[in-house]
């Protein structure tokens, strides 16, 4: 099955039912995780989702209690912040753009970017996407509504578009000598808008929601966002990974494929395509843990990249 299936060619050939296209051909799964709720109970079947929402909203709350209640724990926004007056944190994606634009930042920004970079290098780049980024709430909502409404089809650009876009973002920064992407970057704009006020930025956030809902399934986070691409690149060697360590128990229900924001990362680990171990090592995996939640057979768990064992 290897050559033709993975290059996605020849429609007349049999498509493996466990491939991403197989899932698409089986139709949209409206309520993935129903089995899991029956098997494990609602709370355990939403464990990682709840933790993730707590993380996203908690981080947002830390930024908001300052302007709302006057408790200045964290000042600034995700682009750059100061926690308790001592800990600087800066988005390395912004520092990368700044360097490309020809500006050398002060050491606070460099130190802050270094801390953030070290964290994501170690633990997993796209943890940012699923555990921190507020746009994830928007695109998850769009994906949920898409499943519920049974919206099928749509056209998403190639998943590699984001890497090209990342390259061009840096090129444009160098060419214009400014942080050109930050004029339109929905990720920083949404977070900044929540804290400092939106203006017309709601339009961009709404645009992403409807793009994901009506035009391209998982279009923004999974195909276009250059910031996600940046974090995927820095998280290539990170430690925290999802493992399909009980893949022998898999009953091909496809719930994990239906719920996964980057479904192409599952198959190599779950079905042993191109690798023999059950770890999802693809840098596009956001380690959101939704596959762990929705699996009624407890196939997946979050572990380290050194744990290649199966049970």
């Amino acid at each position: 099955m290897s050559a033709h299936a993975s290059s996605g060619a020849a429609p007349e050939r049999k498509v493996p039912p466990t491939s991403v296209r197989g899932a698409a051909m089986r139709g949209v799964v409206a309520r993935p995780g129903r089995e899991a709720v029956e098997a494990k109970g609602w709370l355990r079947a939403h464990k990682w989702l709840l933790l993730r929402r707590a993380s996203q909203l908690g981080i947002l709350a830390l930024f908001l209690v300052g302007p709302w209640l006057g408790w200045w724990i964290v000042k600034g926004n995700l682009s750059s912040s100061l926690t308790l007056g001592v800990l600087p944190l800066t988005d390395p994606f912004l520092v990368a753009q700044q360097l490309a634009a020809g500006q050398w930042p002060y050491q606070e920004a460099l130190l802050g970017a270094g801390i953030v970079l070290a964290f994501y290098l170690l633990f997993g780049g796209r943890l940012f996407c699923s555990w921190v980024c507020p746009v994830n709430l928007v695109t998850d909502a769009a994906a949920w509504l898409r499943r519920r409404l049974g919206l099928k089809g749509g056209k998403a650009p190639s998943g590699s578009t984001r890497y090209w876009l990342l390259g061009f973002v840096l090129v444009i920064a160098a060419a214009t000598g400014s942080l050109a992407w930050e004029w339109v970057n929905p990720v920083s704009m949404f977070h900044r808008g929540l804290i400092f006020g939106f203006g017309l930025a709601w339009g961009i956030v709404g645009g992403i929601f409807f793009y994901d809902l009506l035009i391209a399934p998982r279009g923004w986070c999974g195909h276009l966002c250059p910031q996600g691409a940046f974090y995927a690149l820095i998280g290539r060697a990170a430690v925290v990974k999802v493992s399909a360590d009980k893949r022998s128990a898999c009953n091909d229900c496809m719930d994990c494929f239906a719920v996964c924001p980057e479904p192409q990362v599952i198959r190599p680990a779950l079905k042993g395509v191109g690798q023999d171990h059950p770890l999802i090592l693809d840098a596009d995996c956001t380690t959101c843990g939704r596959c762990v939640d929705v699996c009624g057979k407890d196939v997946f768990r979050i572990t380290t990249r050194f744990n290649r064992s199966e049970s």
Partner: peptide, 29 residues
């Protein structure tokens, strides 16, 4: 090229003089 739009200057302005441009203000967002 240098401003990362974090708003720390806005936060530390004691007179609320400074503000961050919102999309549509005509100033770089």
């Amino acid at each position: 090229a240098a401003c990362v739009r974090c708003g720390l200057c806005v936060r530390d302005c004691p007179y609320k003089t400074l503000k961050l441009a919102e999309l549509g203000d005509g100033v770089a967002t």
